[in-house]
């Protein structure tokens, strides 16, 4: 059916319409849940989506093992993953941009600087500082304020530094795993990939410890003004991406251990997951510098 010169166009497929229904239930269910309704639709949609993804990826793997995928088709997957990661970069860019707009423009103006400094009259006594420990609300209204700043912030040179080392190490281990896969050393590949997944879980554990510390001991929450907002939104979305990346790598590990998938010259599933992992790593380095170190 497929030779090097012909491109495999799949037959009709039920996957897309079921994926649509799953995605719709997730979106509608999330809105319904957040607005005070029940959470069932959201969770049912998540299950449906997980099932569709399972069948979808199975189909793609099956087609590849049946030899239907020409080199040209494989390049389509490579382009697809590459530009998907670029779209994720732009998503994070929006939040980094927000952080720097606030720090460079909004807060100095609120603090009375420059042409726009008159806005300080609305928040008398507010001074611009970063990290923002006293919000404009707290500065102007004292005890009556609704949005108050955190008591303290996370010290970059303890858990965050450790997490930086962990993630950088995991980028290294996943690369070593890739090298062994290309040399067809299955056992070494499995060991180094296991190490990567373990490092991923360790990172997530420390991140959870850090969040617990922030919420319980430091009064640093989503609701403690713009510092808490940017801190948790940036690190939170990153953490969600680490979770996803860890799951992806775990699935690759299971595929290798249980089903003996991947060949030295044909393993784009793993490679795509490892690209995603490197991307998550780069975002963390940016977070460590711009949120933790330069924000502390």
């Amino acid at each position: 059916m497929a030779t090097e010169s012909s491109y495999y166009v799949p037959e009709q497929s039920r996957l897309p319409i079921f994926a649509t229904i799953g995605l719709f239930m997730i979106a509608f269910g999330a809105a319904n849940w957040i607005n005070g309704g029940s959470a069932y639709i959201f969770f049912a949609g998540s299950l449906a989506m997980a099932a569709v993804l399972w069948f979808w990826f199975s189909a793609v793997i099956r087609e590849n093992m049946a030899g239907l995928n020409s080199d040209q088709l494989k390049r389509s997957y490579v382009w697809g993953m590459g530009w998907f990661i670029f779209s994720e970069v732009m998503f994070f860019a929006a939040f980094f941009g927000a952080l720097y707009y606030i720090r460079t423009f909004a807060l100095p103006w609120l603090g009375g600087e420059g042409d726009r400094g008159t806005s300080n009259m609305l928040w008398e006594g507010f001074e611009n500082n970063w990290p923002l420990m006293v919000t404009p609300d707290a500065a102007a209204h004292g005890d009556a304020a609704k949005i108050v700043g955190p008591k303290d912030i996370i010290d970059p040179w303890h858990l965050p530094l450790l997490n930086t080392i962990i993630l950088l190490a995991s980028s290294f281990t996943v690369h070593v795993a890739h090298v062994y896969l290309k040399k067809n050393k299955r056992k070494a590949f499995n060991i180094w990939l296991t190490a990567t997944v373990a490092l991923g879980f360790t990172f997530l554990y420390f991140q959870a410890v850090e969040y617990y510390e922030a919420y319980v001991h430091l009064g640093l929450t989503l609701e403690s003004g713009i510092y808490g907002t940017t801190f948790f939104m940036l690190t939170g979305f990153h953490g969600a991406h680490v979770t996803l990346g860890t799951i992806m790598l775990l699935i690759m590990l299971l595929r290798s251990v249980i089903a003996q998938h991947f060949k030295p010259d044909d393993h784009f599933g793993f490679e795509a997951a490892s690209w995603y992992w490197h991307f998550v790593d780069v975002v963390w380095v940016a977070l460590f510098i711009f949120v933790y170190v330069l924000g502390g």
Partner: peptide, 23 residues
Amino acid sequence: MMLMDIHFGTSFFSAAGGGDPVL
């Protein structure tokens, strides 16, 4: 950002918390 401001108490677009509607 809107969703978080509306439902989860963040301050992206609220000057009271140090944010900015112009953002």
